[in-house]
């Protein structure tokens, strides 16, 4: 097998709670290897540490113990090779859409066009709808042309049609060779987009199940195969107990 693009080696993460009285263990002894070209979806109970896992891979948070490796080198901080899409768009409200996507590279305008937002490039973030703001955030993360895209529930709080059109964008991005890692709590989304599903336990999060599904794209969620997988995943998540 080829060298993994991203790798967690025995990673644990502890937090102090606000009073400093207790310690919260978010991740415990986690091992994971992600290959180039995978679309990994991560599902788990809320508050289990999915985001923490993603942040460690991005280099936004350092693990308390263990190592995170990107292409064999230890991650010591954020890098433009690993794009990060936050749960909320986090656009700078004082910059226009174009200036926001240009923060991280001159290719921003091209990605804005890919997201069908060229005509809004001079708008300010507050003038955008939720779906548009998320597209801008996606374009901003893509502007440096990352090899890996880390996505923290970017499609929550969106209406169905916006959601499915953004899912298509994500699928296109992945098909162009970007390795995607998506945190979600929507099984259908994982089935629509993913090639692999990581099911996390309650906190402290450990990998409960690691499922590779090799269904062809585009996927029809109503097909027998998808329904089969869906039922299997639901049963497994029930075992994890939400």
């Amino acid at each position: 097998m080829a060298r993994p693009v991203l790798q967690l080696e025995n990673v644990s993460k502890k937090f102090n709670d606000g009073d400093g009285r207790g310690t919260i263990v978010a991740l415990q002894n986690m091992d994971l290897a992600i290959q180039e070209g995978e679309f990994v979806t991560i599902i788990g109970p809320s508050g289990c540490g999915k985001t923490t896992m993603l942040r460690i891979m991005a280099g936004l948070t350092a693990p308390s113990s263990g190592r995170c490796l990107y292409k064999g080198k230890e991650v010591s901080g954020p890098s433009l090779e690993r794009g990060y899409v936050f749960q909320d768009p986090r656009l700078f409200p004082w910059l226009t859409v174009l200036d926001n996507v240009r923060l991280a590279g001159n290719k921003g305008e091209r990605f804005l066009a890919k997201m069908h937002l060229s005509e809004f490039k001079n708008a300010f973030p507050h003038e955008l709808s939720g779906g548009m703001a998320k597209r801008v955030a996606l374009a901003r993360a893509l502007a440096p042309e990352p090899d890996v895209l880390l996505l923290d529930e970017p499609l929550t709080n969106l209406d169905l049609s916006t959601r499915s059109s953004l899912q298509k964008e994500l699928h296109n991005i992945w098909q162009q060779g970007v390795t995607c890692i998506l945190v979600t709590h929507d099984i259908d989304e994982a089935l629509t987009l993913g090639t692999r599903l990581i099911l996390l336990s309650q906190r402290p999060a450990v990998i409960q199940h690691d499922i590779v599904f090799d269904l062809p794209f585009p996927r029809n969620l109503k097909s027998e195969e998808c329904q089969h997988w869906r039922q299997k995943i639901v049963d497994l998540t029930m075992g994890v107990a939400y």
């Binding site: 502890k14 937090f15 102090n16 709670d17 606000g18 009073d19 400093g20 310690t23 919260i24 809320s46 508050g47 289990c48 540490g49 999915k50 985001t51 923490t52 993603l54 942040r55 948070t61 350092a62 308390s64 936050f86 749960q87 909320d88 768009p89 986090r90 656009l91 409200p93 004082w94 300010f124 973030p125 507050h126 703001a133 923290d152 906190r203």
Partner: peptide
């Protein structure tokens, strides 16, 4: 600036997910 008249509300996310049971500001242990 125009953005201040109706700026987007920033979510209170501090360090990724905070568990609903804890809900307080989490501090990293390094």
């Amino acid at each position: 600036p125009i953005w201040q008249l109706r700026s987007e509300p920033v979510r209170g996310e501090v360090h990724g997910e905070t568990s609903p049971a804890v809900g307080k500001r989490l501090q990293e242990v390094q």
